[in-house]
């Protein structure tokens, strides 16, 4: 179980590039540049839903 205040992605408050680099590390791949904006957007959406689930205000 993660700490409720712990973000889903450590780089969630960083730039899209840094956030997607973190995701690339998790997945063990280098993603094409055209994925960056959409993957970052969706990662932030997942963070939002995790915060709602945990009743965390970020």
């Amino acid at each position: 179980m993660m700490d409720p205040g712990q973000p889903v992605f450590a780089e969630i408050d960083s730039s899209d590039d840094r956030l997607v680099h973190e995701i690339e590390r998790i997945l063990g791949v280098t993603l094409p540049q055209q994925c960056t904006q959409g993957v970052a957007l969706n990662a932030r959406l997942l963070q939002k839903h995790a915060d709602i689930l945990r009743a965390v205000t970020r």
């Binding site: 995701i23 904006q37 995790a50």
Partner: peptide
């Protein structure tokens, strides 16, 4: 693709919480 990629990186702990 971009939705699935973000989901693929979601920590298992968050999945189990849900």
């Amino acid at each position: 693709r971009d939705r699935l990629l973000a989901g693929a990186a979601l920590p298992k702990a968050v999945y189990h919480e849900a």
